[in-house]
């Protein structure tokens, strides 16, 4: 298998960064009290994955990783559109974007 010139340590550092992004995204999603910020956190997670793809693609000298990133960005954009529409809906409903305000469906 063909491997890139930069060493494994470097790949690991990219992965660490991507992992950190993921974790930040998760934590942000869990603790922030605003729907928009929460959505942005998921975007952050997506980007964490994207970094991993790019780094690994470079590592393996395989372009498919970068292709993947393009698609990730596209999908993220689509999701963003959807998210904003929903957020508008929600805001119209309760005048707030605090996710805890929307607990009508529960046990």
């Amino acid at each position: 298998m063909m491997l890139a010139s930069f060493g494994a340590a470097t790949l690991a550092s990219y992965l660490v960064v991507s992992g950190i992004l993921l974790v930040i995204g998760v934590v942000g999603f869990l603790v922030r009290r605003n729907l928009i910020v929460m959505f942005l956190c998921t975007e952050l997670m997506f980007q964490g994955a994207a970094i991993a793809f790019v780094a690994a693609g470079r590592y393996y000298l395989d372009y498919s990783g970068q292709v993947m990133v393009i698609f990730i960005l596209t999908v993220a954009a689509a999701e963003a559109a959807l998210a904003l529409a929903l957020v508008v809906f929600m805001h119209r409903q309760r005048d707030t974007l605090d996710p805890d305000a929307y607990g009508e469906l529960a046990e």
Partner: peptide
């Protein structure tokens, strides 16, 4: 949608690790 996005992100990260 929100939880779906979260889980999609997890899945995507999983894909990334598989790629790695």
């Amino acid at each position: 949608f929100f939880l779906g996005a979260l889980s999609a992100a997890l899945m995507l990260y999983g894909f990334a690790l598989l790629y790695v």
